[in-house]
Amino acid sequence: MSTPARITAIGSYVPDQVLSNADLERMVDTNDEWIVQRTGISERRIAADGQFTSSLCIEAVRDLLRRYPRAIDDVDYILVATATPDMSFPSTAALVQAEFGMRRAGTADLSAACAGFVSALHMAGGLIAGGAFRKILVLGAETLSRITDYTDRTTCILFGDGAGAVLVEAGEPDEERSWLAAHAATDGLDGHQLYRAATADRIGGQAVDIGGKLVQNGRAVYRWAVSRVPEEIGAFLDEAGVSPEEIDWFVPHNPNMRILEAMSGRTGIPLERTVTTLARTGNTSAASIPIALREAAADGRLQPGQLVLLYGFGGGLTQAGLLLRWTL
């Protein structure tokens, strides 16, 4: 019998510096009404000079420890989902390990953009189920402000910085399972619609800009997000034998409200049961789901025994879903 995995602690962090819609009005040709109508975002948080993705991760772990005092010196592995690591190597996860002195922990960064955090949970659950490890720290974190082109009015209104952390631990074999079902899908041929190039100047046969900034074809990504993503969510729930009505809370990646509203109509999961922090944090990519989870846990919406659907989707174009029985 495989070992069940469960989330035993959660924390998050967003920087103090606020970038409001009024601030953006002074930077590009836009206005508050236009931004709110199209995205639902009023402000986003921006890392200060000297704050990096690892800095945000470390603060998220500190928040986790304040809210759920637990030993972490025996953590077996640290996984950081990020598209904006401090550097290629050492990994951001290794920098987190150094801060907290988890000497026996393996470390790795995972790059799956907005699907990264759920993909990391897939891996953590599998490592625990297979008996390889018993305690894994999983983080989703981004400093997207460092790769945002603030002359591009179509993208700079969207993105913010933040981090979230969860502790995933092995339960007892006879305990009720928390990890119920997982799902993944990728449309790699359309990867050029949302990317940040490093060394290559092409994705498949498509030429791309290697300027180091995030590039998005907003219309193409919107069409994909409101068609392919709900289609895959429906297939996932069918395979799991779960109806939309049975989902207590839907915690998706938070790209913008127009996408979330369209997804609600097409999946049958109402917005009232969708957790989002988008208005105050903007699109934080891999960090958006753990930030939203932490808020829902803190304000009492999330309760033990509830059925929770996590679903990340974005650059790749990649999707990752996880159906959880909430235990925290």
Results as ranks from 00 to 15, higher is better:
residue 90 P to T: 08
residue 80 V to N: 09
residue 88 S to T: 14
residue 176 E to A: 15
residue 178 S to M: 10
residue 160 G to Q: 12
residue 116 G to P: 00
residue 195 Y to H: 12
residue 100 F to K: 03
residue 121 L to Y: 14
residue 135 K to D: 02
residue 89 F to C: 12
residue 177 R to I: 14
residue 161 D to H: 04
residue 165 A to C: 09
residue 155 T to F: 13
residue 114 C to S: 01
residue 134 R to Y: 01
residue 201 D to R: 11
residue 196 R to L: 03
residue 165 A to K: 05
residue 92 T to V: 05
residue 157 I to K: 07
residue 161 D to A: 01
residue 197 A to N: 01
residue 77 Y to N: 05
residue 128 I to K: 01
residue 157 I to D: 11
residue 132 A to D: 11
residue 125 G to E: 14
residue 154 T to E: 14
residue 191 G to W: 04
residue 88 S to C: 11
residue 162 G to Q: 03
residue 136 I to W: 12
residue 197 A to E: 05
residue 108 A to F: 12
residue 91 S to G: 11
residue 144 L to N: 06
residue 112 A to P: 08
residue 190 D to K: 13
residue 192 H to S: 11
residue 177 R to K: 14
residue 167 L to G: 15
residue 84 T to G: 11
residue 97 Q to N: 01
residue 102 M to T: 13
residue 172 E to P: 02
residue 99 E to L: 09
residue 178 S to R: 03
residue 77 Y to F: 15
residue 102 M to P: 00
residue 107 T to Y: 01
residue 104 R to A: 12
residue 134 R to P: 04
residue 81 A to N: 08
residue 179 W to P: 01
residue 142 E to M: 03
residue 200 A to F: 02
residue 115 A to K: 04
residue 173 P to C: 10
residue 80 V to E: 09
residue 102 M to I: 13
residue 160 G to H: 08
residue 177 R to A: 15
residue 111 S to C: 10
residue 180 L to G: 04
residue 119 S to L: 09
residue 149 D to S: 05
residue 161 D to K: 06
residue 202 R to W: 07
residue 188 G to C: 07
residue 118 V to Q: 03
residue 148 T to E: 00
residue 125 G to P: 13
residue 182 A to G: 09
residue 155 T to R: 12
residue 203 I to H: 00
residue 158 L to P: 06
residue 77 Y to M: 15
residue 142 E to Q: 09
residue 155 T to S: 15
residue 203 I to R: 02
residue 172 E to Q: 14
residue 112 A to W: 09
residue 145 S to C: 05
residue 132 A to W: 00
residue 191 G to R: 03
residue 123 M to C: 11
residue 88 S to W: 07
residue 118 V to P: 02
residue 166 V to Q: 09
residue 178 S to V: 14
residue 136 I to T: 05
residue 113 A to I: 06
residue 205 G to F: 00
residue 93 A to L: 05
residue 105 A to L: 02
residue 92 T to A: 04
residue 188 G to L: 13
residue 177 R to Q: 15
residue 118 V to D: 01
residue 90 P to V: 05
residue 128 I to Q: 04
residue 185 A to E: 13
residue 175 E to D: 15
residue 172 E to H: 10
residue 146 R to S: 14
residue 189 L to V: 10
residue 81 A to E: 08
residue 81 A to I: 12
residue 190 D to S: 15
residue 154 T to V: 07
residue 168 V to Y: 04
residue 140 G to Y: 07
residue 119 S to T: 14
residue 197 A to H: 07
